[in-house]
Every structure is written in structure tokens, then in C-alpha cells.
Design a protein around this nucleic acid. Structure first.
Length: 284
DNA sequence: AAACAGGCCTAAA
DNA sequence: TTTAGGCCTGTT
């Protein structure tokens, strides 16, 4: 891959495995949206970015310094997904799923944002999850001014820890509001040190996360995979259950993916959600 | 109208 | 250890 800067745009050429549509629509994040021309705008780490595909190149509206400081890491540019696809293609089905999902990358998202977002995701659909997250950011995040309007950063833990369920009502998070505030307070008080979990084993991280009321197996696994870049974490939701039943007779040990179970899961999930029966469905 | 949605918690077998 | 019912809210 090569990266070069030109007229306010960082261009990545000769990139393998980077399809913005798949990266943003594969279910790992909730703050990226495309316009009519396929240009995605999103906010991460207090920065607004526009990103799109131009022929064989990926274009980021950012300075080269910002690319090096934030986006190179955020988009996991130093990981070889071609190699990982090969490693997790353990059978015919996985070969198909990885081919279909080629272009997916696991974003290295902020751990608190991931935790909060996946608490919100429980028993919810994507449009509504996105709506709740945006209202949360608008109500409690910091303004970020850009040429085409005002965006909002994801709120600090402390700001959410200091609010109440009543005050949070306009966000319309429903029964998840209590969980969000409770988690924020646990982190803010130091009871749960999210970033220290990066250096702990998957078992320890999982059990510490599950110690927080409102976080079960599925949300904890998502936090590990998407917020702590623990790429062996294996979230199982209804879609994954269905696929495992269909292709592995209901039983599948994550071990078969040799440390890459989380990424394997993402290919399976994306494939499962894109097809229902024989029919290709629109995923939005 | 009633069921359901990318879980979790609690109570009860 | 597994299972049922309830939970906010919005959409079909």
C-alpha cells in the first residue's frame, strides 16, 4: 500500500481489503453515513472524516499528519486481511464467506464508545441504534465545526456518569439508559479500567466486563472485538446462531480459527445478514 | 393490533 | 444449568 497527500486529500493506492461500504455496513460501527455519491462521513476520536473510493484508491479528506496519527490506526491499515482471510477459510463455507466479505476491516474504535454503543444495540435495530447514539452525541458530546456543518464528538465517560436517567430521557434509549449510566459510573470511578483490559487475557476481560450490570456475553464480546481489538473474541447474536446451526450443526468452537475468531465471525455475520435463504437482501 | 427487534436480568425449575 | 417473562421504544 502507498499513501500520499494531494490537495487536502490523503490517497491510499494499492490497498488490499478495504471496501468502505463493507467496513461501515458490516455492523461494527454506528456513526458512519453515506451520501448519494457514496462518500462516508463519520466522527471518531473527536475528528470528522470524509472517506470514499475513487477507482482503485481510497480517499480520505484529512491532512497527512491526521492520517498518520488517527486514521491509519483506526482503519487497521497495518494488518494483512488477505492473510487472515486465508487463515480462517477452514472449509467451503468459510471460503465463500471470506470471499463475499473481502474488504471488511475491523475498526480500532474507542473502547468506551464501543461499550456504550453495544449496550444500546441490545434488542434493537440499526436505524434506532444509530438514532440513539446520535442523540447521545448531540446532547452530551462536544461540538466539532466543519465546512459543511456542526458534528458532535462521542461524549466523555464523565459527562454520562454525571447525568441521570430522567435527564437522559430525550435520548430515547429506553431500558438501556440505566445500563449506560451504570457502566459510565463504573468506568469513571475506576471500578472498571477499560483500557487495562487490553493487556489482560480474553477470559479476564470477558469476566470483568460481564461484572457490569447490563453487559452480558454478547455485548462483552463486541466490546472486546470492536473496542479493545481482541480479534479472537467471538460475539454470538441471533444471526450467528442461525449460521452456526445451518453450517456447523449448532456447534462451532472459536478455536478452529487460530486466534482470529472475531474476524472470522465478522465475515460470517456479514454473509448471514446479506442473504436470507437464497435471496440477496438490502442491508441498511 | 400485536409481534418483533443485532440482549440482559431475575426468578423459578 | 437451562428457561420464561419483562423491559423502553419504534416499526411493521
Amino acid at each position: 500500500m502507498k499513501a500520499y497527500y494531494e490537495n487536502g486529500i490523503v490517497r491510499l493506492s494499492e490497498v488490499s481489503d478495504f471496501d468502505p461500504v463493507k467496513v461501515f455496513e458490516c455492523g461494527q460501527c454506528f456513526r458512519w453515513n453515506a451520501d448519494e455519491e457514496g462518500i462516508y462521513t463519520g466522527v471518531a476520536f473527536d475528528k470528522v472524516l470524509k472517506i470514499w473510493r475513487d477507482g482503485d484508491e481510497i480517499c480520505l479528506k484529512a491532512t497527512y499528519e491526521e492520517y498518520e496519527r488517527i486514521w491509519r490506526n483506526y482503519f487497521d491499515m497495518d494488518t494483512d486481511y488477505e492473510k487472515i482471510r486465508r487463515l480462517v477459510s477452514i472449509d467451503e463455507y468459510m471460503t465463500e464467506a471470506t470471499q463475499f466479505g473481502a474488504g471488511i476491516r475491523i475498526l480500532r474504535q474507542n473502547s468506551w464508545e464501543a461499550l456504550c454503543s453495544f449496550i444500546i444495540s441490545q434488542c434493537n435495530n440499526i436505524p434506532r441504534i444509530k438514532g440513539i447514539v446520535e442523540r447521545l452525541c448531540k446532547g452530551y458530546g462536544e461540538e466539532i465545526e466543519t465546512q459543511d456543518g456542526i458534528y458532535y464528538s462521542f461524549p466523555d465517560v464523565g459527562r454520562i456518569a454525571a447525568t441521570s436517567e430522567e435527564e437522559l430521557a430525550p435520548v430515547r434509549a429506553g431500558f438501556r439508559a440505566g445500563y449506560i449510566i451504570n457502566a459510565a459510573r463504573a468506568i469513571d470511578s475506576g471500578e472498571l479500567d477499560l483500557d487495562s483490559l487490553k493487556y489482560k487475557t480474553d477470559e479476564e476481560a470477558l469476566s470483568e466486563l460481564k461484572g457490569i450490570k447490563g453487559i452480558g456475553d454478547k455485548v462483552a464480546s463486541c466490546v472486546m472485538l470492536f473496542g479493545l481489538y481482541k480479534i479472537d473474541a467471538f460475539p454470538i447474536d441471533v444471526w450467528m446462531k442461525k449460521t452456526i446451526k445451518e453450517h456447523y450443526d449448532g456447534r462451532l468452537s472459536p478455536c478452529v480459527f487460530n486466534g482470529y475468531a472475531g474476524i472470522a465471525q465478522q465475515y460470517m455475520f456479514y454473509h448471514a445478514r446479506s442473504f436470507v435463504g437464497e435471496n440477496r437482501v438490502i442491508v441498511k
